[in-house]
Computed example of a mutant assay.
Amino acid sequence: MREVQLSTSQQPLWSIGELAERAGATVKTVRFYSDQGLLPEAARSSGGHRRYGAPALERLQLIRSLRGLDLPLPEIRRILEDEDAIGRALENAVDSRLRELGSEVKILRWREAALHLVRDCPPAQRAGRLRLLSTLSSPPSTAPLARFWRAWLPPRMPRQATAAFLEVAVPRPPDEPHPSQVLAFARLNAMTAAPCPGGRQPQPEVHRVAGAGGAALLYAGLAEAFELAAPHLRRARDPHPGEALDGYVAAYASAYRSRDTPDFRRSLAARLSAEPRLDRYWELAAAVLTPPGGRPRPTPGSADDWLRAALRRDNAEAA
């Protein structure tokens, strides 16, 4: 029978090997945690060997449970050092790890969808798709899209107004993308990252007329009009005059320092038809937001199209 050493308090003391056996761990593991200062020694033998008591066994079991949750050693150390609030420390550590795992899962889902995209396309297209996808991180960054719009917006536009516009103009990558959404985002990324002829995107006339401050008011008014138009788009209603169109025209009337009159509406329709269009951007943005078979989600581009058509109809009816 194995002889168990007793401490002065008559509690059994174990060697590293005996502690490892009781915990179902390896001696190497016990020695590592002991060297890290995570396992309390109860005593030393006459030969200088470590001896451990029941608290070390409990501590070792807790460490192994925390490692089973894939918590890193620094987090485990913080939990063990905060014994008076171990519940709170453990909750914080678990929450942090859950956030990390969520990010890792999102990365894996994007990579999986990208692999399906390459595997399922015609062989002649694979090289091109690989080049296109090589420009994306997993999950992809929206920074190129934001830079594209910052270069398009009037210089010195207030930061808050710019942030509000980017919130609606830049589509967020879905957490569980379909391969078609990955392809749309990759194309959107390539489009916005490509250099513009002349170094700057063509801008609408209203930017020059309104200036930075006026443009902020313009886009705030347009955002409200787009929100009012969105339910009509979701229900696939034909463009028609109403509250959404009135808000749309009012935003431009303010930027042009004019009033909403029949003459202004006619001149606005002509101005808008002559402005540069970003149809391809909004087409791809809608594809990013909408999985196959889903109902298309309204974008500022589709809402603007609907409101322009409503304006043309209104002008036609007034004539």
Rank of each mutant, 00 (worst) to 15 (best):
R2D: 14
S7T: 08
Q10F: 08
Q11G: 05
P12C: 04
S15E: 00
E18G: 04
E18M: 08
E18C: 03
E18S: 11
T26S: 11
Y33E: 04
S34H: 13
P40F: 14
S45H: 01
S46F: 02
S46L: 09
A54F: 12
A56G: 15
E58T: 15
R59M: 10
R64W: 12
S65N: 14
S65Q: 14
S65G: 07
R67L: 14
L73H: 04
L73M: 08
L73S: 07
E75Y: 00
I76K: 08
R77Q: 12
I79G: 00
E81N: 13
D84N: 01
R88S: 15
A89L: 13
L90Q: 09
L90G: 13
D95G: 12
D95Y: 08
D95Q: 10
R99Q: 13
E100V: 09
S103P: 00
S103V: 05
E104T: 09
E104K: 11
V105N: 03
V105W: 05
W110H: 13
A114I: 07
D120F: 15
C121K: 07
P122L: 15
P123W: 14
R126V: 06
A127T: 14
G128R: 11
R129G: 01
L136W: 11
S138I: 01
S138D: 12
P139D: 11
A143L: 11
R147P: 00
F148E: 01
W152S: 03
L153E: 01
M157V: 05
P158M: 05
A164C: 04
F165Q: 11
E167D: 10
P173A: 14
P173S: 12
D175C: 00
E176R: 12
H178R: 09
P179F: 10
Q181N: 13
L183G: 01
A193D: 09
P197G: 13
G198N: 13
G199T: 10
R200D: 06
R200G: 02
P202E: 10
G213D: 00
G214N: 03
G214L: 05
G214E: 03
L218H: 05
G221Q: 01
G221F: 01
L222N: 02
A225G: 05
E227S: 14
L228G: 03
A229T: 03
H232R: 15
R235L: 09
D238E: 11
P239Q: 00
P239M: 00
E243A: 10
D246T: 14
Y248G: 03
V249I: 10
S254F: 03
A255M: 11
R259W: 02
R266T: 04
R266C: 00
R266D: 01
S267F: 00
L268V: 01
A270W: 05
S273W: 12
E275N: 06
R277E: 09
R280Q: 12
W282K: 04
L284T: 02
L284S: 04
P291K: 13
P292A: 07
R295T: 12
P296C: 06
R297E: 13
G301N: 01
D304T: 05
D304I: 03
D305V: 15
W306D: 07
W306M: 11
A309R: 06
R313V: 06
E317T: 07
A318D: 03
